[in-house]
Simulated assay, not measured.
Amino acid sequence: MVSVEELEAVLPSMTPWRVPGGRGVDWVALEAGLGTALPSDFRSLAEAYPVLVVDGFLTVSVPRPGAEALWASEAGNDEVLQDLFEMGDTGDYLPFPRPGGLIAWASSGSGDAFYWRTSPAADPDAWPVVVRGDNGDWSEFPVGAVAFLAGVYGRTVEVGGMPGDFPGHDPRVLGLSDDVR
Rank of each mutant, 00 (worst) to 15 (best):
V25P: 00
V25Q: 08
D26F: 07
D26H: 12
D26I: 10
W27N: 09
A29R: 14
L30N: 09
L30F: 08
L30C: 11
E31S: 13
E31G: 13
E31A: 13
G33Y: 10
G33T: 11
G35Q: 14
A37W: 14
A37L: 15
P39W: 06
F42E: 03
R43F: 10
R43N: 10
S44L: 03
S44W: 01
L45A: 02
A46M: 03
A46Q: 02
E47N: 00
E47V: 03
A48Q: 04
Y49H: 04
P50Y: 01
P50F: 02
V53M: 05
V53A: 08
V54W: 00
V54R: 00
G56A: 02
G56Q: 03
G56M: 03
F57C: 01
L58K: 03
L58F: 02
L58T: 05
T59K: 07
T59L: 06
T59F: 01
S61R: 09
S61W: 12
R64A: 14
R64Y: 08
R64V: 15
R64T: 14
R64I: 15
P65M: 07
G66L: 06
G66A: 08
A67K: 14
A67I: 03
A69T: 13
L70H: 09
W71H: 11
A72Y: 10
S73H: 10
A75H: 02
A75T: 06
A75M: 08
G76V: 09
D78Q: 07
E79F: 11
V80S: 12
V80E: 15
L81S: 07
L81C: 08
Q82C: 05
D83M: 12
D83W: 09
D83E: 15
F85V: 09
E86R: 00
E86G: 04
E86N: 05
M87W: 05
M87A: 05
M87K: 00
M87I: 03
G88P: 01
G88S: 01
G88R: 04
G88Q: 02
D89T: 06
D89I: 00
G91H: 02
D92S: 13
D92A: 13
L94K: 15
L94Y: 12
L94G: 06
P95R: 02
F96I: 04
P97V: 10
P97Q: 09
P97N: 07
P99H: 07
P99D: 14
G100L: 08
G101C: 08
G101P: 04
G101T: 02
G101D: 12
G101E: 11
G101L: 05
L102D: 03
L102M: 11
I103G: 01
A104D: 10
A104G: 08
W105H: 07
A106W: 01
S107Y: 13
S107F: 07
S107D: 14
S108P: 05
S108A: 06
G109L: 07
S110H: 04
G111V: 05
F114M: 04
W116I: 08
W116G: 10
R117H: 03
R117C: 06
R117F: 03
T118I: 10
T118K: 15
